[in-house]
Design a binder for these strands. Structure first.
Lengths: 229, 229
DNA sequence: ACATGTGAAGTAGTTCACAGCC
DNA sequence: GGCTGTGAACTACTTCACATGT
């Protein structure tokens, strides 16, 4: 029994869409994109729904249905042209352009995220970092200037920042989220271990690393139980 | 239209269970646990399914149904006793005990995770770190010793390590995952931006921070579209 | 022969609504 | 009156299977 799998956990990370496209579909789209880029790097020009699905643990029908929400991208008898599909999915996700991002909270995790290459590769650039601690707001980390949180509004306007990464303590998260919204930012990636209060016109995804590990823990314990029987 | 929400993205983080409990339920269980602990800290002894659900954006029925998969924990007319329910959920998740964890890959992200408090608070202790780079394997970070990856088997046995956090480059991830499995570790939290090949008897959750941000990006773009119409 | 796109069928997850209990 | 636990109804998602295209 192959107990391994990378499918999607569910409410551990948190987004809701308004439209008729199921959020599960959008989640898989990101995985398709990632896999397609890997395939391209390995020199593949085209890929079939069967192959793409198999690589990610989904059925071929699932792949085709998911893509069908957004258009007809395939070629019967051929499959999908990787480069083309990459471009399409990027357009759908909104990552066909560059995004300026604010990082708020320069603690352990915050500083690591400043140096994280993965964001940049997807077109996200952390334009500025913020903190409340005066000892941090003097300089810069990883070449990114650190400002006092009160300057968020000004700097956000200057750099046209539309997304914020929150790496602040749980107790401060909701207050900071309000400031972020007030600065005209409409997307928040929240690393604090609390569910943010909903803010009109602002989308949020929560990423709780400890919860993610806890989910893994459940799988491990569960699979042990099953193997005994 | 309140476009904010922290519900669960779907296949962005990746777990599959064998049993009949939907993975979505297990995901929400972690959120209930987190909220219950916050409620306790605020001095609440009991909570109703309505209140708990409202705090997280779920219906009262959802909360009750989710918990009903595991037993009867509530008191009609009263609700749920927070402390009691916390203990129950911890037991279900397997976090009622302590877990020794190996961290593999001491780059930017890896080192930040070594210092991340959230894991410890849930009972996870990073007992040892590993890397291939000899310049890193001499010392320690955050008080945690760093070993050469080849020592994984020995050290894992010594510390009874059952979980591993992979913070290695994408190109190395699958190879390292094999070594992890060979060391007798049965749970992998994968930060590398690839879907790991399935390994017999090993559970994996994938956490791709860039994908998480991409999902947020989609929500923001989408909600913009909707507001125009 | 191979692969897409899609209606139809099937499965899984969520909400309703109410009986029973405090 | 407030609240849980749960069958029944409903909704959403996934898979099937095949017509169509290369």
């Amino acid at each position: 029994m192959a107990n391994n799998e990378e499918s999607h956990g569910d409410p551990v990370n948190e987004v809701r869409s308004l439209s008729s496209v199921p959020k599960a579909v959008v989640g898989r789209l990101s995985l398709y994109l990632r896999e397609l880029q890997n395939l391209l790097r390995q020199g593949n020009d085209t890929v079939s729904s069967t192959k793409l699905g198999k690589a990610l643990g989904f059925s071929d029908a699932q792949v085709r249905k998911d893509l069908a929400y957004f258009g007809q991208f395939g070629y019967p008898g051929i499959g999908y042209r990787c480069e083309e599909l990459v471009a399409e999915i990027k357009k759908i996700m909104g990552t066909d352009r560059h995004w300026a991002v604010a990082l708020i909270g320069c603690g352990n995790l915050g500083r690591a995220l400043l140096g994280y290459r993965g964001f940049f590769q997807k077109g996200f650039k952390i334009a500025a970092a913020f903190d409340v601690d005066p000892s941090k707001t003097v300089g810069q980390f990883e070449g990114i200037p650190v400002y006092d949180i009160e300057e968020l509004g000004t700097i956000a306007k200057q750099h046209q920042i539309r997304l914020a990464i929150l790496a602040v303590p749980a107790a401060a998260a909701n207050l900071v989220a309000e400031k972020v919204a007030a600065a005209g930012i409409t997307g928040i990636m929240n690393f604090a271990p609390v569910t943010l209060n909903s803010i009109e016109g602002v989308s949020a995804v929560g990423v709780d690393l400890a919860i993610e590990l806890e989910q893994l823990c459940y799988s491990v314990v569960k699979s042990n139980d099953n193997n005994l029987s």
